[in-house]
Design a protein around this nucleic acid. Structure first.
Lengths: 352, 352
DNA sequence: TTGAAAGCGCTAACAT
DNA sequence: ATGTTAGCGCTTTCAA
């Protein structure tokens, strides 16, 4: 295990200065002869520039961070694959962290990324706007994916505004109307949910329930909007993110409201819970209850009957987010809203 | 966005030398008074040591690399969660890469890790022993998870042995009988498959097929061993790793050998394909065909009937692998074989 | 076009 | 117990 060649080795072997080697390797100006010689020597020595030196010099790590709630959730697996595909084609490293949907773990992981000087981050956020403002102020370029941080409470927003004012050194900036102004790549939850609710309505369903998870505000809101006032709040229930709590929520819902005839699950883990709970309670899908699940995952087709889903492009979402965070050349990239698609399979039937 | 405090800032503010700060922060010796003062100043300045400086000085990045074939495969999601859990509790960063099961992409990613000076790696290998020897020789501490690299062809092995001999500088080492001597954390495939085959045999099945994927050598071998000679080779088929090819393999198998009565799928993606293909061909599970799938994934329970599986502890596997790679204090850690469990649900029935 | 030299933030060897 | 100092490998002024 001989140690790696350094830029100095290459410089000496090529009879030039280290600066010249650096220039040649990063596409700077150099005479054709020099360039050729340096390249040859570098190849011959199997020289690989060390990211360590470069990073320290530039005071930043290349690549990007990626924070997701849970890699056993297939949707986040898809999203991550998208991010990794983009990063790979750019030759950039990705430092990943799984937050478990817990703001504290998320904060810890952010701290770790800061320590590593990773200054670009793609995150499916779990903490609220307050936990994220400091990150932005620390100079991180972040792109949210799948969802946005919860809005902070009014007093928190006020506090943040004051902090912002105090932070204004010489830099003039437009006063932020909202505390968080970060690009994001998300699915068109509003349209997706609306389409699903309309579809169920069209089948004659009146009592439609929503089974949500943490961070699914936009889907819940979309649901409330789609069913229209008055919303039967008992039909809107939440799990905390774990499979167990999702199951408990689903089971509780079915038992407390046997009059419901359809449910919209806000994500694939919730859909899974709904199928399980329904079976446990001897409710047949779709005879006794119709089911639409957010997320198209491979196993949706394996269910009996196959699940009707609101598909969102997880992989694209990740890929686009990675593109945004890489391209962010100082300028704030625009947010992206990706379309959803209602894929009708067999889990919804007419209301009876 | 004021820039971060450095160790020098802390030293000056505390009226001590930088070395003292470094010592205090890394638990070296210092008087109680000094320690206290330094800590106070550091906290007050919100000082976070930069990994950049430390890494360069130590010529190595902390943390570890993680290479898996595909994050949309739930099993690798579980494995990754295990790795991340261990890394998080150690405060170490994880650089992840998805290889798509392709040796070339794997090689690229290894190159990226080398460039980052990541010298600890957990990998579900796709390349064979030849592609891995250079990595080991480069000084990486690697722990394989889930499977081992394919053995190289005989001439390659011989070449590697020669290379090893030539690499023997002053270091004396026992002559390696095998070209690759790397710790690994794997499931007890042999027992898992044997149990499944016996179970199917017990139900009266004679023509049992195996549906495998890349890198599942040990499972195939275990299958061959379990069914005993003569092995009907037509009943042993392979996909290339993608969902499509798995489906094609499963479908082809069912069509070419309608006489088979049971199939063992070597992984959850293959199991998925088998369920899909069977349904497409109007084969009922378990009436027409019994199915056992390697991997216990949440959706296995959602199928109708719920799938009988050979469960392997994916999360533990990742966690243990991470422990090994972190603890590797120069000494080669021992390999670990994790138990599997046959979980009987409803996808197997008596032969008819 | 090229080279010399100054660090980036940190740790470790050495000196006190 | 503590301070001084020499780099780790690289990029980037600044001169030549």
């Amino acid at each position: 295990m001989e140690k790696r060649a350094t830029i100095k080795d290459v410089a000496e072997a090529a009879g030039v200065g280290v600066a010249t080697v650096s220039r040649v390797l990063s596409g700077g100006s150099a005479s054709a002869a020099t360039r050729e010689r340096v390249l040859a020597v570098a190849a011959q020595l199997d020289y690989r520039p060390s990211a360590l030196g470069r990073n320290l010099r530039q005071r930043r790590t290349g690549g990007m961070g990626l924070l997701v709630p849970d890699l056993t959730d297939t949707f986040y697996g898809q999203l991550s694959e998208g991010v990794l595909a983009c990063a790979r084609s750019a030759g950039e490293p990705v430092v990943i962290g799984s937050t478990g949907g817990d703001p504290e773990q998320e904060a810890d992981l952010i701290g770790m990324l800061l320590e590593q000087s990773v200054d670009r981050l793609i995150a499916v956020p779990s903490g609220d706007a307050d936990t994220w403002s400091p990150v932005l102020r620390a100079g991180m370029t972040v792109v949210f994916a799948d969802r946005l941080p919860l809005q902070s409470s009014p007093e928190d927003v006020r506090a943040a505004a004051v902090a912002d004012l105090m932070a204004l050194d010489g830099l003039s900036a437009a006063a932020p109307a909202r505390p968080l102004d970060v690009p994001a790549v998300v699915a068109d939850d509003r349209a997706g949910i609306r389409t699903a609710v309309r579809y169920l309505r069209g089948l004659g369903h009146k009592r439609i329930a929503f089974l949500g998870g943490p961070g699914q505000d936009s889907r819940v809101n979309a649901f409330r909007e789609a069913v229209g006032a008055p919303v039967d709040e008992e039909l809107v229930v939440f799990g905390t993110g774990s499979r167990d709590s999702a199951y408990a929520a689903a089971s509780g819902l079915f038992q407390s409201r046997p009059d419901l005839s359809a449910v919209v699950a806000g994500g694939n883990v919730l859909g899974e819970a709904a199928v399980l709970a329904a079976r446990e309670l001897d409710l047949r899908v779709p005879r006794d209850v119709s089911l639409v699940m957010y997320d198209d995952v491979p196993w949706a087709e394996l269910c009996s009957p196959p699940l009707t889903v609101i598909a969102q492009p997880g992989r694209d979402m990740g890929y686009r987010a990675a593109e945004l965070v890489l391209r962010a050349g100082g300028r704030r990239p625009r947010s992206v809203v990706l379309p959803t698609e209602l894929i009708i399979r067999g889990s919804c039937g007419p209301h009876r």
